[in-house]
């Protein structure tokens, strides 16, 4: 596991040196602009607007990084042949994969924490927020992070055996499908055959359920988020990531690096 940490830290260093964290400047600009404008366009719902806007920005920016950098985690190393020298050293392929995953998740964590601080700063500027709101926003940020970890795992899986473009399409496709899991499960129609409905229901249990991680509305209204949901989502994300990473390892350990 020590080598996993070494690869992860190097992946984080790569993200920092490739100026991935520059997106924080963009986020800061959005929050400053929102803080100035929100008072003029909304009365009494400033907090809600800022929280919604802030969480959406954290989620979208995080997703862009997770998908676009995630799909290159392995394929870029194969294209540039940078992993040849590394894999000829005493590094197991699963250690390399886990390190790459850990490195990007670490990058996203640092990025998300910085953006969350920016959001709290903006909230502090416009209003004296209550503890409920702060707690809910923190949980919402945590859920975004879980969601991003899951997206990184999926991107890494596709990165192991397909081109970056196809990997982006597959990851984005799975993410979008995962936002409609509940609808797929409850889907009933007279015009669609039972077989199709059964397939949809079956798929809804296999696809990653990204709906569970969306508590943005509750956070914006300052509603408390149940502890059970936090535990459930944590366990779900951990288990799903483990399964996806195991699949990625199974593919990558058999792959010839031509």
């Amino acid at each position: 596991m020590r080598r996993v940490g070494i690869v992860a830290l190097n992946t984080f260093r790569e993200a920092v040196r490739d100026r991935v964290l520059y997106n924080l400047v963009f986020f800061a600009l959005v929050m400053i602009a929102a803080s100035i404008l929100v008072g003029q366009i909304s009365i009494g719902i400033e907090e809600m607007v800022i929280v919604s806007l802030g969480l959406s920005a954290i989620s979208v920016i995080g997703l862009l990084i997770a998908v676009f950098i995630g799909v290159g985690l392995v394929s870029k190393e194969m294209d540039k042949r940078t992993l040849y020298a590394l894999l000829a050293k005493p590094v197991r392929r699963w250690e390399f994969l886990l390190g790459k995953f850990g490195g990007l998740v670490l990058t996203l964590t640092v990025n998300t924490i910085a953006m969350a601080l920016g959001l709290f700063l903006a909230l502090g500027v416009i209003t004296q927020s209550d503890e409920h709101l702060a707690g809910s926003v923190l949980v919402a940020v945590y859920f975004i992070l879980l969601k991003l970890a899951l997206v990184v795992a999926l991107a890494l899986l596709f990165s192991c055996y397909t081109t970056p473009l196809l990997a982006i399409l597959c990851t984005a496709g799975l993410y979008i499908a995962g936002l409609f899991v509940k609808e797929m499960r409850a889907f009933q129609s007279d015009t669609v055959s039972q077989a199709v409905q059964s397939v949809l229901r079956g798929l809804s249990y296999i696809l990653p359920n990204f709906e569970n991680f969306d508590v943005m509305a509750a956070a914006a209204h300052g509603r408390a988020i149940p502890g059970l949901l936090i535990a459930q989502n944590t366990a779900y994300a951990a288990l799903y990531c483990a399964v996806v990473l195991a699949a990625a390892t199974a593919i990558f350990t058999r792959r010839n690096l031509k």
Binding site: N10, K80, R81, Y84, A85, A88
Partner: peptide, 9 residues
């Protein structure tokens, strides 16, 4: 091991 036409980070 030195790869052919090596490229590093």
């Amino acid at each position: 091991y030195l790869p052919e036409q090596p490229y590093f980070y």
